[in-house]
Nucleic acid binder design. Structure first.
Length: 498
RNA sequence: GCGGGAGUAACUCAGUUGGUAGAGUCACAGCCUUCCAAGCUGUUGGUCGCGGGUUCGAGUCCCGUCUCCCGCUCCA
């Protein structure tokens, strides 16, 4: 329990710092906030952009991954093909007595055959079932019976309530009958309308993932870029999910940003490629400063309908482990479905066998917003220096919003002027910050708190011999070097990780 | 959606049995200051989340609502 409250306090400190120093603000705060939406402030947007830039470089510098930026709005049929229309809207019911919540299909899946038979009788759906029996000329299994009832319930709005009233569907948790509410639909996709007229025929969705924009452009990109299988397409962009519950600051939000890459390959090469990408992505997080001790790879036990293998890279947040990137072997599911729904071929020609085939896909789907929060949590540190507490954000220099602070040791003897001149010069190639307010120690600490890796100080020696000190954030160690070498020195240290 | 906790200055929080709001930090201006949150002076900033109600009078009591955190549920 002590651990829980400590970690909660930690998250609160991070949220507080994020707001005070301009990383994250709550959306529409002056109107009371908007649930599950957050705004990136001046420093936040720098960190986020640096994170996305690190990812983009890592992907596109390979030569076998092309970039893409697809529209957020897509043809509604895309989401039928992807399975989101069906799978993203689950009817759910609550137990009024014990407050448990269930998905309707789960309810019937886990019910005894005897009870399922009783329900099918009571609900007068035997005729429908017998029609199916005649059509297929065989008995329905228990699972099929459950699916049949689920389908009937979804079609007939009052059927479920009737069954509950007849005490045929008890709550699996508390066992009481007649306590379940009517099914309510939870559609996790945001809906909007194309054109000014709000009618069902014009409905489109805000994408719940960026991946589909890649799949539908697969042939366009391959032909335009003259890539050959195997190759990948990567994309960074906002996605939207109408989550029932938002949670944990930036971790579960309704609007979030993804960094996704789909790697198209031939069937049979998918498994080693899955392993290779898993390692590549793991190393990417490590190279940006994530310690091994706070990362883990967790294979999925239950696979989604599209996946052959799947797992998450998880980061140890203050509230526990949470996914920051999913790596999936999506097989040829998505391309096959889009071929089926669009009627257009998405096959490629195999030079060797002279056959056409639908490529397999290995997906890496990282959360930009989640990664942002992970780096914030990982970097946050408190330590005691000579009896005083120091808060320091240990961000990788490439991620740090501000790269260098330039400080006159005191505000006289021309130090401010020299410092301003240096800062103006640095500013042309990196985000820098000039500060002459307060004592030098206070200014160092201010910069520590937002993760600025270098602080350049102009002192009286500078006036004599044109040298300055550069203080490194984590060690607080200083080196002295000629003012003319500062830019080169820092530029080298803030280079992107390999 | 249910249960619990919380919303007062940019941040962290006081605010008595109801009498129209304070502290520290931060920020800003100035003084001071020659390397790790020193000190002094001054200043900005709040219709107490929002909306009703009770009352002569509500930060305080009542109702509703929004947001955040925790748990349950959910998370193709």
């Amino acid at each position: 329990m002590a651990q829980v409250s400590t970690s909660q306090a930690l998250l609160e400190k991070i949220v507080s710092l994020a707001k005070r120093r301009g990383f994250i603000f709550q959306s529409s705060e002056i109107y009371g906030g908007l649930n599950g939406c957050w705004d990136y402030g001046p420093l936040g947007v720098e960190l986020l952009r640096n994170l996305k830039e690190a990812w983009w470089r890592a992907m596109t510098k390979r030569g076998d991954v092309e970039g893409l930026d697809a529209a957020i709005l897509m043809h509604p049929r895309v989401w039928e093909a992807s399975g989101h229309v069906q799978n993203f809207s689950d009817p759910m019911v609550d137990c009024r007595a014990c407050k448990s919540r269930y998905r309707v299909d789960h309810l019937f899946n886990e019910m005894s055959e005897k009870r399922l038979r009783a329900i099918s009788k009571a609900a007068n759906i035997e005729s429908a079932i017998s029609r199916t029996l005649v059509m297929q000329s065989r008995d329905l299994s228990k699972d099929e019976l459950g699916e049949m009832i689920t389908a009937m319930v979804e079609k007939n709005g009052t059927l479920f309530a009737d069954l509950v009233k007849q005490e045929l569907i008890p709550c699996p948790n508390c066992g009481r009958a007649g306590t379940l509410t009517e099914p309510r639909n939870f559609n996790l996709m945001f809906e909007t309308y194309i054109g000014p007229v709000k009618e069902a025929a014009n409905a489109v969705y805000l994408r719940p993932e960026t991946a589909q924009g890649i799949f539908v452009n697969f042939l366009n990109v391959m032909q335009a870029s003259r890539q050959k299988i195997p190759f990948g397409i990567c994309q960074i962009g906002k996605s939207f999910r109408n989550e029932i519950n938002t949670k944990n600051f930036l971790f579960r939000t309704r609007e979030f940003e993804q960094m996704e890459m789909q790697f198209f390959c031939k069937r049979g090469t998918d498994e080693p490629l899955f392993e290779a990408w898993r390692e590549t992505r793991w190393n990417w997080w490590r190279n940006l400063g994530m310690p091994e001790s706070k990362l883990r790879f967790k294979p999925h036990e239950k696979l989604a309908h599209y996946a052959k293998a799947a797992g998450d890279i998880e980061f140890l947040f203050p509230f526990g482990y949470g996914e920051i990137e999913g790596i999936h072997n999506r097989t040829d599911f998505d391309l096959s479905r889009h071929q089926e729904f669009s009627g257009k071929s998405l096959q490629v020609h195999d030079e060797e066998t002279k056959e056409k085939y639908t490529p397999y896909v290995v997906e890496t789907a990282a959360g930009a917003s989640r990664g942002f929060m992970a780096f914030l949590c990982n970097g946050y540190d408190e330590e005691t220096v000579e009896g005083e507490q120091r808060v320091v954000l240990r961000l990788h220099p490439f991620l740090a919003p501000i790269k260098a602070a330039v400080l006159p040791l005191v505000n006289k003897d021309g130090m401010p002027e020299l410092a301003q001149q240096l800062e103006r010069d640095l500013r042309t190639s990196m985000k820098s910050f000039y500060d002459d307010s307060g004592a030098i120690g206070r200014r160092y600490r201010r910069m520590d708190e937002v993760g600025t890796p270098f602080a350049v100080t102009i002192d009286s020696d500078t006036l004599q011999d044109q040298t300055v000190t550069i203080r490194e954030r984590d060690s607080m160690q200083q080196v002295r070097l000629p003012i003319g070498q500062v830019k080169e020195y820092i530029t080298e240290k803030i280079a992107p990780p390999v």
